[in-house]
Design a protein around this nucleic acid. Sequence first.
DNA 1: CATGGTATGGAAAACGAGTTTCATTTTCAT
DNA 2: ATGAAAATGAAACTCGTTTTCCATACCATG
Lengths: 149, 149
Amino acid sequence: MLNAYQIGETLREYSYKMTLQRKAILDIILQNRDKHLSAEEIIEKAKKKNPRIGASTVYRTIRLFEKIGVIQQVFLNDGIMRYHMINPDEKREHHHLICKVCGDVMDVKEDIFEIFEDQIFRKNGFTVTDHRVKIYGICKKCSEEIEYV
Amino acid sequence: MLNAYQIGETLREYSYKMTLQRKAILDIILQNRDKHLSAEEIIEKAKKKNPRIGASTVYRTIRLFEKIGVIQQVFLNDGIMRYHMINPDEKREHHHLICKVCGDVMDVKEDIFEIFEDQIFRKNGFTVTDHRVKIYGICKKCSEEIEYV
DNA sequence: CATGGTATGGAAAACGAGTTTCATTTTCAT
DNA sequence: ATGAAAATGAAACTCGTTTTCCATACCATG
């Protein structure tokens, strides 16, 4: 997983400047590696660090970090784009467990579905290059809470 | 799979009226059972049938047909909602093969991923209720065309 | 250490898919 | 045929996101 220094280097490679605002947004992203923040959540956290940061700067920086491969979009089908740090070691998309109770999003690291690609090719003549899986249900924490009610 | 008559009956059950506009939109949906139309595409086709049909009516009718279980949303992660007829015989979501060359969307009927739900529960304590799978790649037609170039 | 050109920032306007409002028209049970 | 209720189309409005505008900051040069 990338660290702040490596991301600074990547910016410099592309001749983008490391500004205070970008640093603040980068810190937010790094401090929330395991989360799937929306632009609005990033703006809120950024304004806490520095009230002089504008929403357009946050959106621009999000797109910049997308372009240089630091973060990527995650669609959870609620009309809001979320963002997630890219792990350059992963060759393929990972998948998401989405809790219907608390809304928490967890990653499924292992690609448990890879073995089906051959089956899909044989049945449909469709050559698979990638797949994205969203698994809905109830997370551990929420199902424990439900038990004790 | 539902036919025009059954859908008309369903409308009547809920005391919704069958208007010319709703009939036109219904016909478009029935004539494109195998497609995954966006609202914009439905509006375009509806205007061809009857130029006096308004976009808001199409959006309203789409939501109406969703409510009474005629169509359902399909998210393809491009920010545009698409719609697909519901087959009442299917108990669970089916999945989608999306061709990266021609953009065509095909359904995967069999639920090939069901056996993994237990595995996800054991590993993550996450109780799966549903999952949506999007498989990207190159469809049969497109890969044949590529071969002959 | 000026100079000028490029990059950056924030505010506000624009965008676009989708929704709502409201005055008018259509439907359908009577 | 009639009138209450429902449906319609045009236009206004959301709301997340993007772009524009222009002033300011940066940085490699003369």
